[in-house]
Design a protein around this nucleic acid. Structure first.
Lengths: 368, 368
DNA sequence: ACAGACAACTTGTACGTACAAGTAGTATAA
DNA sequence: TTATACTACTTGTACGTACAAGTTGTCTGT
């Protein structure tokens, strides 16, 4: 026998599998006895037993002591589990995340992937629970919206476990952790902040205030763009015109800042950059109740271009968030990572200013 | 050797397993060679091989040709797959479904369940694809928002397959198929329609129009409540004041009805019942552009009490949708069904009228 | 007609041998 | 110093034998 030939028991295995596949042997039928096979193929019974033993293990055959060996259900007839991608977001019902999830779904669903949802409510403890649950799940990939991305993350150990031990590709959206060099898809928030602020500067405003979120990295970046735009025009950023809020404050009251703080901003500024449309709605409401007209008395620019931006009578000037597109990009990236085509993705999406009715040229306020 | 004693290879297997369990051998460590074992236990190498072969198959050990045999992860150490519930909705980013999903998540997540998302875009073909994907997934339960619930469903065969063959508990939300006697959790939409319409009747309106969705059963029920309220007050439902739209029209343009149709309603009616907040926003916008004041010239009542209802300068009078609560109820029901505690759930949640600024008492229109 | 013994088959356990082939470290030669 | 060969160990393949034990049908004596 030449050295190239396969082991005898392997040959016998393949012969039996082929016979079953050709349906010459059907499930439940008795196959030849071990001695018959040994004679037929000129091998010892031991070798036959080895072949049949493995086939039993693989689910092709089963044996009954004293009766014989029979054909089992074919193992490859088993339905394959659909593949799954985990998606971890901060909020499920916040106004833009549903769109991102929809974008992810539109790419993954046609490829036969399931999406497993988890939400952290922007809390590190919840994030940890979600990650632990994902460790108990057979995942093919993970898309993560960063939780409290501006703060140090206490759950990096679990991320590493998923990524390094379990070899699950991970991609971050809406931010990334500096300690981990994982792939990410983000909006260029510095640019977004710059666009929003520069729009107001171009309209002649000089007393520009801002409301930003302190515990999400997006808030920091948008503020960075805000500062950049100001300093390029030779304006100093006045800290009394900047309001910071965080997740906990935002949960207590929509918009995250109270009326007294807003009223102070109204007095000091002719224009406001709002962290997102939700904040802008809060500002709009307060301004309405104080008799301040938007945009005549106060120009507003916000971020995200959500449904809210066009819901009100004053349509909001906002810097558009790619939303669905961002979800699609993240989904496409993770598919490439799963296929092993491209390991590292660092995608920054360009924001776009949409001018609507909430901003106008600066005019001296007269009625005060 | 007495007849009662176990086979030698079986004894060896048990000895090795015990050694691993006592952690005298840890994962990755090399165990004794086949010859060592044969000598140690006074058996032939063949018998040792049989024992080790079975342990390899059971996941306790692995062999490397030429190196030795090593301890694998313990099979009973395998983390159990987290249990999963499928959630199938029509839209992922529509304004109330995120809240429902959040409600579901808030109940299931703490119990260690994963949520697998799928969305049908309110199309029967997509629904079929989703159901087929669920058939290829190991599910413990399924929560379904009915797709085009007012039309006959062509996918009942797959629902039956999941329910009867696969024994997966299914619960419907937002409607149910009359041909299947499955559990459901719904809002009492007839009552909701009645509350909305009766509110307008109480305010003295007599020329009341309505905009309803034709291919979702909710639209039918809300219209039923509308009719009921009218006839109880002795008013006839005038078909020229009723507008019907469907999924496809709603996708083309937000709100699902065009301006000419709305203008006609404005002329004929002093009050409108809108299928949901989105429709009401569309009506509000058109009314604004025609110089029609809400609520002075036209009272509006809508359904769902979403974010949109309070986004505009005119806060909407709506019949509140239980949203998160409905999701929670559905999740709790499916957990009971999985536990085998209660097989059939038919939960109807009471709607609640929230009076805001978009509706007021009827006054003769003067300025025409 | 029926129970029980028996034969002939099956798979299961257990022993033996031999050599092939992969791995790792050591000794040897260039 | 480096490449090569060798050795000693490992598991993998393959042959042989023997008997135990479960299943089935047949033969036999009552």
């Amino acid at each position: 026998m030449s050295k190239l030939s396969k082991p005898k028991y392997q040959q016998l295995k393949e012969h039996i599998i082929a016979t079953i596949k050709e349906e010459q042997l059907k499930p439940g039928e008795k196959i030849w006895s071990e001695n018959e096979l040994a004679n037929k193929f000129q091998m010892s019974r031991h070798t036959v037993r080895q072949a049949i033993g493995e086939l039993v293990n693989e689910g092709w055959l089963y044996r009954i002591h004293g009766k014989g060996t029979f054909v089992d259900r074919r193992p490859d007839r088993e339905v394959r589990q659909a593949r799954t991608i985990g998606v971890m977001t901060t909020y499920l019902n916040d106004y833009i995340f549903p769109s991102i999830i929809r974008g992810i779904d539109s790419v993954l669903s046609p490829k036969g992937y399931n999406i497993i949802l988890a939400s952290t409510y922007n809390k590190h403890e919840k994030e940890r629970l979600c990650l632990e649950k994902f460790l108990n799940t057979e995942l093919d990939g993970l898309i993560v919206e960063t939780t409290k991305s501006a703060l140090p993350n206490p759950n990096l150990d679990l991320y590493r476990q998923l990524s390094h031990s379990r070899k699950i590709p991970i991609i971050f959206i809406h931010g990334f952790y500096k300690d981990l060099d994982y792939s990410y898809v983000v909006e260029d928030d510095v640019e977004a902040g710059y666009l929003a602020t520069n729009h107001l500067l171009d309209l002649g405003h000089t007393r520009i205030g801002g409301i930003f979120k302190s515990d999400d990295i997006q808030g920091h970046y948008r503020f960075e763009g805000f500062s950049k735009a100001c300093s390029l025009k030779g304006l100093e950023v006045c800290s009394s015109r900047i309001l910071w809020f965080d997740t906990e404050q935002a949960e207590e009251k929509l918009g995250g800042c109270d009326n007294e703080q807003l009223d102070r901003l109204f007095e000091e500024c002719s224009a406001l950059v709002c962290y997102n449309d939700q904040v802008a709605m809060k500002v709009l409401d307060r301004a309405r109740s104080k008799g301040i007209n938007i945009p005549e008395d106060l120009s507003l620019v916000s971020f995200d271009d959500s449904q809210l931006a066009v819901a009100s009578e004053v349509k909001l000037t906002t810097v558009a968030h790619p939303q669905e597109k961002l979800g699609e990009e993240a989904a496409r990236a993770i598919l490439q990572m799963i296929a092993g085509k491209k390991k590292y993705h660092a995608i920054k999406m360009k924001p776009q200013l949409i001018v609507r009715g909430s901003s106008c040229e600066y005019k001296e306020r007269t009625g005060e």
